[in-house]
Each structure stands twice: as structure tokens, then as C-alpha cells.
């Protein structure tokens, strides 16, 4: 074995190990979902008689589809809203920068460093007084605000990569700002916008802190659904695993389907 082959072998091995470490908990969770509660807390074993009991019981206790629908509405709703706000914002920052643009961007990103729990009480009170508690609209608003810094920042970097001349040529050709955006900017940065949107959907789908604190039944998404199966007493591991499997299944499939798009978008600037 020569040197470079050995190197490739090592890198390959490392990749497999890392992938396994990341994948194993998910694998174990799926497995546990098909066990009985007693088998779930018995010595870990790969050999058991699979059963759908946990799934049936989970579905009897709470309507999965209601939570799933809430998750879909909230994560896509907040993503669309975030894009609608972020595209004009990123446009002006990328193409009409002022002295304060860089600072504004950094400030926006720095808000992500604040622990969310720090603003829980004010937001809870605001939501209570405006009737947004346990509404989908409420979570859409919170998730939009939560993801906006990252969405603006990502779009800004994609837009900045677009040669200014192209938009100026459009303006010479008679395009209004809106036409410039619709006919030139959006089609040319679509891979970037798509991957930004996908990231926002995934982040919203997986968000648990706000959904647990601001919803109870009506607007609760899948993260709240999972949490509802952990209880201080009794056996719940199999049911929790079954619920978790169902909760992550859609986003896993979604992520898998859009994987190509994600990679293309995130490397968009680099390979152009």
C-alpha cells in the first residue's frame, strides 16, 4: 500500500467512524420505538421481537398529524416570512451599502449570542397580553425573528457575490428595482436563496425552547409532541422513541431530498 492510498484509507475510515457516531443514537431510537416498554429498559440488545404497540399507543394518546401539520405551517410560514423580510434587507445591504452596513450585520448576528431564556419572560408576557400564546402565528413570528439574522447574513453574502454590473445593466435596460430583483437577482441567486430557506425550515422544525414555552395544545409542533411523552414516572422510553422517530422522519426525508440543493447552494459562491 503506498502512502497516498493509506492516507485515503485513513480518511475514509475516520469518515465512517464519525458517521457511525452521529448515526448510532438515531438508529438506536428507531430500534427502541419497535420494542415493548420492558424490552426498552432491559439490557441493550439487537435481538427482540418487533412490535408496533408503542406507535399505536402514541397515536391513541395524541394526534400525530395535528402536531405535524402545525410543524409544517410554522416552519414554512416563518421561512417564507423571513425570506420576504430578508431579501429586501440583504439587497439594500449588498447593493446600497452605507458606512453602518457592516456594523448592522454584526449587530444582527450578535443577537444570536443572547440566551433565549433571557427574553422568555418579556416575550411570554407580550404574547399573553396580545393573545398570541399557543397560536401558530405567534410561533411563526418568534421563529422568523430567531432566524432572520442568519437568513439576512446568508442572503447578503450570496447577493454580494453577484456582479453589480449585471444589475446596473438591467437598470440601463429599464428595469425598476422590483423588476431588477424579480428578473435578475432572484433567478441568479436562486441556489443560495433555496439553501438559505432550507436551513431556516430545518432550524424552525427542530426548535424546542420557544415551542415548549409558548404553546400548550392548539399550536404545538412536533417538538412539543415528543416532549409530551417524557413523564416523571412510569415506563416511557419506547413510546418516546416512537414519537421521536415520527417527529424527525419528515425532516429527515426532506433533508435527504434537498441534500443536493443544500450543498449546491452553500458552495454556490465558491464554484461560480
Amino acid at each position: 500500500m503506498n502512502n497516498s492510498m493509506f492516507k485515503r484509507f485513513c480518511i475514509g475510515l475516520l469518515a465512517w467512524v464519525i458517521a457511525f457516531v452521529i448515526f448510532f443514537p438515531i438508529f438506536w431510537m428507531v430500534l427502541t420505538g419497535f420494542k415493548t416498554e420492558t424490552a426498552a429498559i432491559a439490557d441493550p440488545s439487537l435481538i427482540f421481537s418487533p412490535t408496533l404497540d408503542s406507535y399505536i399507543e402514541v397515536q391513541q394518546r395524541a394526534d400525530y398529524f395535528k402536531f405535524a401539520w402545525n410543524s409544517v405551517v410554522i416552519s414554512f410560514g416563518s421561512t417564507i416570512l423571513a425570506l420576504l423580510i430578508a431579501i429586501p434587507a440583504a439587497y439594500s445591504m449588498a447593493f446600497l451599502p452605507t458606512r453602518r452596513t457592516k456594523g448592522t450585520l454584526l449587530w444582527m448576528l450578535s443577537t444570536k449570542m443572547l440566551p433565549p431564556v433571557g427574553v422568555l419572560v418579556p416575550i411570554y408576557l407580550l404574547f399573553r397580553d396580545t393573545g398570541l400564546l399557543d397560536t401558530k402565528l405567534g410561533l411563526v413570528i418568534v421563529y422568523t425573528l430567531m432566524n432572520l439574522p442568519i437568513v439576512v447574513w446568508m442572503l447578503y453574502t450570496f447577493f454580494k457575490d453577484l456582479p453589480r454590473d449585471i444589475l446596473e445593466a438591467g437598470r440601463m435596460d429599464g428595469a425598476s428595482t422590483l423588476q431588477e430583483v424579480v428578473y435578475l437577482l432572484l433567478p441568479l441567486t436562486l441556489p443560495g436563496i433555496a439553501s438559505t430557506g432550507l436551513l431556516s425550515v430545518i432550524l424552525s422544525w427542530n426548535e424546542a425552547f420557544w415551542s415548549l414555552n409558548l404553546t400548550s395544545s392548539q399550536a404545538a409542533p412536533l417538538t412539543a409532541y415528543i416532549a409530551s411523552f417524557s413523564s416523571p414516572e412510569g415506563l416511557f422510553w419506547a413510546k418516546l422513541s416512537a414519537a421521536s422517530t415520527m417527529a424527525i422522519a419528515p425532516i429527515l426525508v426532506f433533508g435527504w431530498l434537498t441534500q443536493k440543493q443544500m450543498v449546491r447552494g452553500l458552495t454556490f459562491g465558491a464554484v461560480k
Partner: peptide, 20 residues
Amino acid sequence: IGPAERGLAMVFQSYALYPH
């Protein structure tokens, strides 16, 4: 008056064609 209404056309150094 805006660029388009001036009735001028510009050819850019980078050509600035619309790639799509």
C-alpha cells in the same frame, strides 16, 4: 431622470450579460 429614460445605452467592461 432615471437611467432608462435618458435614452442611452451602455456597454460595460465586464459585458454584464445576464447569465441565465
